[in-house]
């Protein structure tokens, strides 16, 4: 079985290494699985996967954060389940099996959110369901989980989910801060950073501002461009620009 897996994936085991050697549970190789997708192999800015469903939710930080957690969960556990079943899934129907695994997990997330955080659930609307067709989840199942052991596949799923969530939350921070002047609006820790001090009950930091600690707040006029869906594209383009300026290996030569 090990041989056919190698043939299928083109990954050749190190010949010097005895196969039976016990590998550490969380060694250097495992760490790379988590850290690599965060920056150098980021799902959104480098692999261009999974841009689909979630950009529309990034106008506020809190929904982006919820979305990121949902994607990490789905990505990690679908990788784990697929990897556990990788030897019994017939090759011809593997896409449908993968889709059913993902759809089941997304249904779980959907029902859980409906119970735990209904306002956010309403805000995210169809985009939770669209995690099913999020290309990073499927992409990692095809590229990694079908050919690797469960623990490594799980870590790979966590890493890619986190790399995706990182961009999502970063875009959310930029868009909410410059679009509304606040952060985490709608959540229990909503805070007004530079925005107009309107509804002070909504933001716990602003109550401090009104008691005279900071006249720092309230000077900022909201930039409505940032609230538009198109702003997400601009923000990501700038992220890509910065990242590729620092790492010229990533520059698109075609």
């Amino acid at each position: 079985m090990a041989e056919s897996t190698e043939l299928r994936t083109g990954v050749v085991a190190d010949p010097k290494k005895p196969v039976a050697e016990k590998e550490p549970l969380f060694g250097k190789k495992e760490k790379i699985l988590i850290t690599d997708p965060l920056l150098d192999n980021n799902p959104i800015t480098i692999q261009v996967l999974g841009v689909c469903s979630a950009l529309a939710v990034t106008s506020l930080v809190y929904p982006s954060l919820v979305m990121a957690v949902a994607v990490v969960f789905v990505c990690a556990f679908s990788s784990l389940l697929t990897s556990l079943m990788r030897n019994i899934i017939p090759k011809a129907v593997r896409l449908i099996v993968q889709l059913v695994i993902i759809a089941t997990l997304v249904t779980l997330v959907n029902e859980a959110l409906k119970v735990l955080a209904f306002p956010v659930y309403k805000q995210l609307s169809v985009y939770i369901g669209l995690i099913i067709t999020n290309c990073i989840v499927m992409g990692r199942l095809e590229a990694f989980a079908m050919a690797n052991k469960p623990w490594r596949a799980f870590l790979d799923g966590v890493g890619n989910g986190l790399g995706y969530g990182l961009i999502l939350v970063a875009v959310g921070v930029v868009r909410e801060l410059f679009g509304k002047g606040s952060l985490f609006a709608g959540s229990p820790i909503a805070m007004n950073i530079i925005g107009p001090s309107g509804d002070t009950t909504q933001y716990w930091i602003n109550t401090a501002a009104d008691s005279g600690i900071g006249s720092f707040f309230g000077w900022y006029a909201n930039n409505n461009l940032m609230v538009l869906p198109a702003a997400a594209m601009f923000v990501i383009a700038v992220f890509i620009w910065i990242q590729r300026s620092y790492n010229s290996k990533l520059v698109d030569v075609s």
């Binding site: 800015t45 198109a230 601009f234 300026s245 698109d252």
Partner: peptide, 14 residues
């Protein structure tokens, strides 16, 4: 150079 390809595609879409 750093914007070539993907970066421009994002900007144009925006």
């Amino acid at each position: 150079p750093a914007l070539r390809g993907l970066g421009m595609a994002f900007l144009i879409t925006g």
